[in-house]
Simulated assay, not measured.
Amino acid sequence: MTARIEHRFAQCRANGRAALVTFVMAGDPDPAVSLEIVKALPKAGADVIEIGMPFSDPMADGPAIQAAGLRALHAGMTLHGVLKLVADFRKENAETPMILMGYYNPIYVYGVDQFLADAMAAGADGLIVVDLPPEEDEELCLPALKAGLSFIRLATPTTDDARLPAVLANTSGFVYYVSITGITGAGRPDYSRVATAVKRIKGHTDLPVAVGFGVKDAAAAREIALNADGVVVGSALIDALAKTLDAEGRGGPATVEAVGRLAGELAAGVASAAKERAIP
């Protein structure tokens, strides 16, 4: 499954542009609309999809993603439901990489071996589990790699050169660079610092470096795309989704359309950086 991620980044690189990586929460605002959103993202220009696994205590997430997780949980989304969403998506799309993102507790409760087997069977390509440091690789990272799933690690502005080798040791697929300290959706990145950080990380690894946190619109996506292999957007898409919900928190065709429209704008922003990219 790792091959799907590698192929997509290689494809984008061959086209002279960064990849657009979009995050949405599985089951937000309900399982049916969520599936339609996920199906719409590649058509709008998303190259890679991160699917949030809703959890009741999402410590790294800002208000938008926390609210999305709560909506999904209230709508009955479970980890089984997340994997069903991936499997349903795969019935129509065999090319777009799908990465499961969340926290370890639901996976632990599910059972690591069973979860990995079911994730592979559903058609997932990788995992981002934000609360497992490299020191805990035997818990999930190494079993995931053995099962055939990429394990994508986060690097941050506080990940110095002494720490970076440990972060990168068992990372595969790509490196996710968090451009700002703190929770998702907070502030805007300093683009010059992002460029320096990406260059530093690429001095330690041949993996693509995708940059996220704080990318809210096409202009920001373009700035990040000048110096990164991928641009990750989550909170902005979830904000667009939330604005379409009715008083009862229900979505519909307008919800899918709003998320797809913003994804298309972000994709255009990423594409517009192609001729000026610092990365060949």
Rank of each mutant, 00 (worst) to 15 (best):
V178G: 11
P189L: 03
R193I: 12
T205D: 00
L207C: 14
R188D: 07
T181K: 10
P189G: 09
D190K: 08
A186F: 12
R188I: 13
R188W: 11
R193V: 06
K199C: 02
K199S: 06
G203M: 02
V178T: 05
Y191G: 05
T196W: 03
I183Q: 13
R188P: 08
P189Q: 14
I180T: 15
V194D: 01
H204C: 01
P208Y: 02
G182W: 07
G185R: 02
R193A: 13
I201Q: 08
G182F: 01
I183S: 10
S192Y: 08
T181G: 11
G187L: 12
G182M: 09
G185V: 02
P208V: 03
Y177T: 09
G182D: 04
I183M: 15
G185Q: 14
H204S: 01
A195M: 12
A195E: 14
T205N: 00
T205S: 01
R200C: 02
Y177R: 11
T181R: 05
G187D: 11
S192E: 15
T184S: 14
V198Q: 11
V178N: 08
L207M: 06
P208E: 04
D206H: 13
S192L: 13
Y191N: 06
T196S: 12
K199L: 05
A197F: 00
R188C: 00
D206S: 11
G185H: 10
S179P: 10
T196G: 04
S179T: 15
K199T: 10
L207V: 05
